[in-house]
């Protein structure tokens, strides 16, 4: 498995919610909201390309989550199922270029890799009120019986769209578009301000 270390830790990724989080801080004892600096790679790969799927396994150390709405993770990576032939890989900040290069080197046949780190960002939402905030914002049934730990869904959220994944009993990862980040941040802060 590949070990990835950020080359230059002096440069910070520009967090798209930096300003809005200062203007509208998510300060609550009931929930916690943070933007996570991560690298995002979108991989398109047909299930028939078994060689390339094996190559992903050798680089990342994880089998592709072919079961719909599932995800897999280890200490370095998360792979989210997006569609039958589409997967979102999350990796540590500034390691996405090295990972993409390594994947391209190892994979063969028909596939596509796109670095989408610039277009979307990840919010970490947790706390006793986290599930309630999601219930106010999305039509998706986020009760743990329908949305267990590790499940990932792309759905409507606050008149926008996101990819959400449950990481714990009351913690979630939300992948949102950067262009919507101010709006989504303020929506969550507002939804979290009332029980």
């Amino acid at each position: 498995m590949m070990e990835l270390n950020p080359k230059d830790t002096s440069i910070q990724r520009c967090l798209s919610m930096h300003h809005v989080s200062q203007k509208h801080p998510a300060e609550s004892v009931h929930y916690s909201l943070q933007e996570m600096a991560l690298g995002h790679l979108m991989v398109r790969i047909p299930e028939t390309n078994t060689d390339a799927i094996k190559a992903i396994k050798s680089v990342i150390g994880l089998d592709l989550p072919t079961q719909p709405l599932s995800s897999v993770e280890n200490n370095h990576f998360v792979i989210n199922w997006i569609a039958p032939d589409e997967f979102l890989i999350l990796t540590a900040d500034k390691t996405e270029h090295a990972l993409e290069a390594k994947l391209r080197e190892e994979m063969s046949g028909h596939f596509a890799i796109v670095d989408v780190s610039g277009g979307q960002t990840v919010l970490s939402l947790s706390g006793e009120r986290a599930e309630k905030i999601l219930k106010k914002s999305s039509t998706y049934d986020v009760h743990i019986s329908n949305f267990p730990i590790g499940k990932v869904v792309t759905t409507v959220f606050a008149k926008s769209q996101l990819v959400m994944r449950r990481t714990g009993a009351d913690s979630f990862q939300l992948v949102v578009r950067r262009s919507f980040s101010d709006y989504i941040w303020q929506w969550i802060v507002d939804a979290g301000s009332r029980a």
């Binding site: 719909p68 569609a83 039509t139 998706y140 869904v153 759905t155 409507v156």
Partner: peptide
């Protein structure tokens, strides 16, 4: 609101997703 079954996600989702 309708619930529509997506054969790829393999579950029912709200109409507004479609």
């Amino acid at each position: 609101m309708f619930l529509i079954y997506c054969p790829y996600c393999e579950e029912e989702r709200a109409e507004e997703e479609f």
